[in-house]
Design a protein around this nucleic acid. Structure first.
Lengths: 335, 335
DNA sequence: ATCGTTGTCGGGAACGTTACCAAAAAGGCT
DNA sequence: AGCCTTTTTGGTAACGTTCCCGACAACGAT
């Protein structure tokens, strides 16, 4: 069973395709009776306009593309839910892609999206992405772009991020106030923007409380599965921290597991606080203190910005970075 | 900056579009020198064929669609990773959609996918889906379909599922062997196929060990956020179970939280085992026993089946259901 | 010299849709 | 009666690509 087209309708009703087309979109310049005839027949035959033909003609698709490193990451899947909520409301479809932290995949995804004529792109950069030519290129092609969470200073676009500095500051300060002195910070590769923001927050808290910054207590950790475990073991052995502040979902879990595997008591020997969106943080042993990012709201805000520029409701000349507050959830792991 | 087309190349090189087209796809009947000329110019100008035009012409897109209830569910995001792994290898893009457990959204997603001429669809049914006309319709249109995990008996298609019966059987049996008598089963809405499979496994284990099946110990629970909590509270109060076996990620977490909130000791008072793909099961308090489904492998297998039928490497006349073994991971919550 | 063959290319239609330009009929105006 | 609007419809090009068909030259064979 093939899909019915405007031509089929035209033939069946002895009309021209242009008449049918206009009737279907309710043009004023068409006889009400003809219009009714066409609409009824279309309904009966379950006619749906071919979106591909429309895209080819109009150079748009009524869909926006989203690229995230990993949907298995709770933060990103929640952000996507925020994006979908507003996009769906405003009549846009959302096409989801994963870069799997690979720069190559990210490029390929971008290629595919612009080829498919998405009306805009929302992206959170992969951990390997060090240059952003692929992004400025689609901007040159006129594709609206909003970067969220994993942003880069090198790209001029609207951006939405959590207040990483503030979150990290509060987390570190809390550890300090509970009497910890050797506060380690385990974080993502240093080329990520969020990494630096969080590091700065951490440093600021130390400085405020007169604790000298000790480079040896900071570890950058890539995305390889076994890497985190090794990094944390080495850190524990050589630096003997009395607190750990981690910078992401993934790292929090890996570190948490590693510390427990070593038989170190949390929070007695080492206090722990993570920057994460885990929904199970309160069910862990012990319950994990977290800095939570408003993932859904970040997605929602980013999508709104994007759709506003697409629909020309936003001044495209001025770009803007929206920062959304984080929230600190203290539980027993950092007591 | 607009994308360059075959016409542009033709004009620039004083050739016809047909010649350029053939040169680009390396047709034998084209002068090697002309071919070289065209290819070099195309490369220089960064030419990429317009996939939309191709789709319109060829009625296909080199993309497959995936519809899952919720990507925030670990099982599904892992399954998607399995799907992407094989699709990427075989030159197909993967378009991800969420039904959010809504039948309407599922229909709308299907519509969008066939409109966009995906070459095949992988779907895991929403919790609200009771009839599958939207699926048989796309089959009639010739779109290959594979259903995975959340399958339905009413649709005739290739299917991939975990061995739910076996997993449930082993879980229940383990609880029985550890001396539990009143084993509750909290599960998803009864119209889901997996629900029944797991229920049957649970029943079979009871029967094997001479424990009469008690309907009051079984609870079906929808997808509303607060529902699980109420259901489990009511169950605990009225039935006093000494063990709970839950049928999904979501339910396991909600129940786990509810039981702990009530101050009931796990596993002392109530043993607990979940059917889940949580990556943090071993970090919970106490570590959670689970029946894990090979999500990645399920996705991989389903995608392979789909791509095989798309590429005509598979006999489309015979349909098949592949069942993949589950694995039971015993931890302290069920001691 | 004529013919068929081979190699190389261009023209046009088609995929489904919309937009522009005509065209025909009907009606109103002077 | 002649002309100009208005209403309603049809024809065609265009979006980017491929594919079928035909054209034309060069070439060897008869």
């Amino acid at each position: 069973m093939e899909a019915i087209t405007i031509k089929d309708i035209a033939k069946a009703l002895n009309l021209s395709t242009s008449t049918v087309s206009r009737a279907l979109r309710g043009s004023y310049e068409i006889n009400p009776e003809t219009k009714k005839l066409v609409l009824e027949y279309a309904k009966k035959m379950n006619y749906h306009p071919n979106p591909i033909a429309l895209s080819l003609k109009e150079n748009r698709s009524r869909a926006i593309g989203v690229i995230v490193p990993e949907i298995a990451n709770n933060f990103f899947s929640q952000a996507i839910n925020g994006i979908e909520a507003v996009a769906y409301d405003r009549g846009y479809h959302v096409v989801i892609f994963q870069s799997h932290e690979s720069y190559e995949r990210e490029r390929s995804n971008i290629q595919h999206l612009v080829g498919r004529k998405v009306d805009g792109v929302l992206i959170s950069l992969s951990g390997q992405t060090t240059e952003v030519n692929h992004l400025s290129e689609i901007q040159k092609r006129g594709v609206p772009l909003v970067v969220f969470d994993r942003i880069s200073n090198e790209i001029e676009a609207n951006k939405v991020i959590a207040d990483n500095f503030q979150g990290a500051f509060e987390a570190a300060e809390h550890l300090i106030l509970s009497g910890r002195k050797r506060i380690a910070h385990i974080t993502s590769p240093s080329l990520l923007y969020t990494t630096n923001e969080r590091l700065e927050g951490y440093k600021a808290a130390l400085e405020k409380h007169g604790i000298p910054f000790n480079e040896n207590l900071v570890r950058y950790c890539g995305f390889a599965p076994e890497e985190a475990r090794e990094v944390i073991f080495e850190l524990l052995d050589t630096q003997k921290p009395d607190a750990i502040f981690t910078a992401s979902d993934r790292l929090a879990l890996d570190c948490f597991a590693a510390v427990k595997a070593k038989g170190i008591d949390i929070p007695e020997q080492v206090a722990f606080i993570g920057f994460t969106n885990l929904q199970v943080a309160h069910l862990l042993d012990p319950p994990l203190s977290t800095v939570v990012q408003p993932a859904f709201e970040i997605g929602k805000t980013a999508a709104e910005m994007l759709l506003d520029t697409i629909d020309n409701k936003r001044n495209t000349a001025t770009i803007k970075t929206i920062k959304i507050p984080t929230e600190v959830n203290l539980r027993t792991s950092s007591d």
